[in-house]
Amino acid sequence: MTALLALPRLALGDRRRRTLAYVGLSLLVVLGVLVAGGLAADPAQTTSLADRNLGPSADHWFGTDRLGRDVLARTLTGLRLSLLVGVAAASISAVIALLLACLAAVFGGVVDRAVTWLVDLFLSLPHLVLLILLAFALGGGTRAVVVVVALTHWPSLTRVLRGRAGEVMSSDYVAVSRQLGRGRWWIARRHLAGHLTGHFLVGAVLLFPHAILHEAALSFLGLGVDPGEPSIGVLLAESMRYLTAGAWWLAVLPGLCLLVVVKLVDTIGENTRALLDPRSHHL
């Protein structure tokens, strides 16, 4: 009997542990990329005109580009830049979402309607078009990319947080608090904050892959990171010209790395959500 009881408990523990392991491993790889990217900053720009356009080899795992620069070093530096831009943009975006959601929930009425209208407006505009227009208006550059990505990614998270906040605000204990004469800010602090934290964190992490991909897209189009900086978008844009000459490694390897990093970050977000969500019965 005890054995029968222990079995599902063990499996339960395993699942939870596995989820934690996923998160831990992914985090480790992403951090590793960050560190390696920092270390590779110099080799990424060092030219070696004697070793131009080499395919992948033991010396250069990802090959070299038209100036003999090591593509692996450039990819790592590019990923690091993408991650930093992603962190900055996703954080700003999430904070905007949290502020708007709280304002809508706490004040209700006109403020709520205004926030909802703003969210609907931004969601109705094609994402990439808005991104390109804003980036063009700001004149490109790394800072412009952060601002543009941050300004365009808050609406969906705002909607989620606002829904959750609305739920909290209409609950009985909030009503009781109101009856007891508690102010709006007290309620927001004591009841809202705790209930929104989980959603906020997960939402922020899930915004992150979007931010990275959009940074790459903007840089690819020449509206993002300065073309002298080795970001993944810049690497991909540069590689286009050499594809017809057979230099597949310039596009394929950095592109795959970007996909892997995005997938890892997504894994972190999804698994964290599963861990935090009390309704994930399977854990």
Binding site: Q45, T47, S48, L67, D226, P227, G228
Partner: peptide, 16 residues
């Protein structure tokens, strides 16, 4: 000029 890949190549190579 940032968008000139030829001059970028020359500048980086000369620096090295």
């Amino acid at each position: 000029p940032a968008d000139d890949s030829l001059r970028q190549g020359l500048a980086l190579a000369v620096a090295d």
